[in-house]
Amino acid sequence: MDTPFGERKSDAQRIAFKSVDEYPEAPISLGTTLINFTGDWRTFIPVVDDEKCVKCYICWKFCPEPAIFIREDGYIGIDYDYCKGCGICANECPTKAITMVKEEK
């Protein structure tokens, strides 16, 4: 999936260094977030109920990432590669269409 801005995401893999020698010498992030997804920081994950959604897009406006996008059918979608699970969308939703559930990892 591309980002909501149409940039092509790379086939990202979580970079995990196994030994000290594998680390870069300086603490730098290699590449941009098109490679380094930030979604795996979260504990809770937003789940949208389309039946309750009234397409007001308040969640879309408030999402700080922004990881909420508008689908072709007008409902909202969440880019879980970047959603950090902050829950602002669920808090702002006037119809309680978004619920935060603990993510199984």
Binding site: A16, F17, Y23, A26, P27, I28, S29, L30, G31, T32
Partner: peptide, 12 residues
Amino acid sequence: PIAVGALGTPAD
């Protein structure tokens, strides 16, 4: 591109 001043979690 790189980012300097990266976050280092307790794992890194």
